[in-house]
Structure formats: structure tokens, C-alpha cells
Amino acid sequence: MVEWLVEPFTYSFMVRGLLAGVLAGVGCAILSAYIVWRGMAFVGDAIAHAILPGIVIAFTQGISLFIGALVAAVLAALGIGWLSRGGEVKEDTAIGVMFSGFFALGILLLSMVTSYQDLTHILFGDILGVSQAELWMMLGVVAIVLFAVIAFYKELLVTSFDPGHAVAIGLSPEMVRYGLLLLLALTVVTAIQTVGVVLVIALLVTPAAAASLLTHRLPRIMALGAVFAMLAALVGLYASYYANIASGATIVLTLTGIFVLAFLFAPRRGLVWRGRAARQKQAR
């Protein structure tokens, strides 16, 4: 049994994959709490799709794909914030416009570059292809996210709960929102390596969605979400090693499974619990 568990990680690419999965999972799960409760899921998905042109340009220029993706993600995040700032364009409209525009530009550029046609790695992730350098960058991003969420905990809390109070005490909710979008851009780029553009949204939403069924405290939602994401990364890697199936999809499906379990069996809030409580009430 122990051998079965340890064997995959005698390969360095598996160790790198595991580290990548854990780092991306932790980064996403921490932000996930804000994404779920501030209703930012669509922005996260949009930023994920918007990195495509950055990756293609970086590839043709021979610079790090990570840097290319990061620049595109930050530009998209700022663009969305800027377009919707005055209220003339609604936020989800701004997101839709930027999202499709960036993604289409990426596909256009890709069609012009004949030497780089492998879209699947970008769309569905390539956790086992993560390099040492990329791992360091991921570690840096997670450190930044952790630092920001702890250092600006008060400001994130008050602007999420009562933006009016924030303004009344001299704090700009707009500025905090931009900061959060930047963190989101950083995190999305790290997550794309592991699960790809299409499934990033799962890492951004599902951990906190499942954790929120089990606790109502923000720090606990973050911690529990991070545990779920790490667990999912581990399951995904074993699946790809032993069953030779796609790790990105397995990671996401594991998270989905955790969510379904929480939805059914969460104490007090779960479906089963509520059903039993209702029956007991009827019996009485």
C-alpha cells in the first residue's frame, strides 16, 4: 500500500506536478472565498480565457509563457475594471466583451503561428509538464496572495460587506476591487498550468462553494477550501499515474465530488440533514 502511494513520486515530474497542483490549489482556494461571496466567478473565467493571446505572443517571441499569460491576464483584469467603472457599461457586459475579444485574438494569433498548434495543453492543462522555474514563480504568486489576503483582511472584509461604510471611513472599494482583480489574474495564470483555461473556473469557485456549506467563518472557508484543493490535486495525480487519465479533469471532478458530498451531508445545511429534520418535525 505504502509502495503504491509512494511509487509515483519517485519520478521528479510527478513531484513537480504535485507541487504545482498544491500551489495552484491553495492560491485559488484562498481567493475562492471572495470569488464565491462577492459574485466574481464570471470575471475569473474571463481572465482565464483572456490569457490566450499572451501565451501565443510569448511563444513567438521566445519569452516565458508564464510572463506572457500574466501580462494578458493583468491587462484583461484592468480592462474589465476600467470599462465598468463609470456604470455606463454593466460589469458582466464588460466582462463578456473583453473575454471574447481577448480569446478570439488568441485564436487568430494561433492560426498565424504554424509551429505552435497544440491548443490542448492550454485548454486542458499540463500539470506534468511544469518546469522548475515555473514552480518558483507559482510559489511567488501564492506567497503574494497569502500576504495580501492577510495584510488587507480588514479592507477586503469591509468593502465586501458594506461598501458604504468603507467609503465613509475613507477607504475606496474601487481600489480594493482592482487589487482583488490583480490577485485573481496572478492566481489564474498559475492554475492554468494544472487544469487549463476551460476548467480554471472550477478551482476558483468549487473549493469555497463546498467549504461554505460546512462553515460560515471566512478564514475557515479559505483553509477548508485549500485542503479540498490539495486533496483534489493528489487524487488527480494518482489517477493520471495509475489509470492514465487526464489529471486536470480528475482534479476538477474530485472537487465536484467533494461539493456534492457537502451539499448532501453537511451538518444542518445538507440535503439529508434538512430532510431528516423536516421528517422529525412532522413526526412530532
Binding site: L157, D162, R217
Partner: peptide, 23 residues
Amino acid sequence: PQRSEVDWRFPVTVRDVVMMGRY
């Protein structure tokens, strides 16, 4: 503020909210 200006569903505790008065 008026009730509708606040996101009551956001996961904060009573103590968290009162502490916002100290920010």
C-alpha cells in the same frame, strides 16, 4: 446604511462587523 446597501449573506460574524467600527 439602509438594510439593502449591505451584503448580509457575506460570511462575517457579529464581532467582525462591530470591529469594522474600529477600522
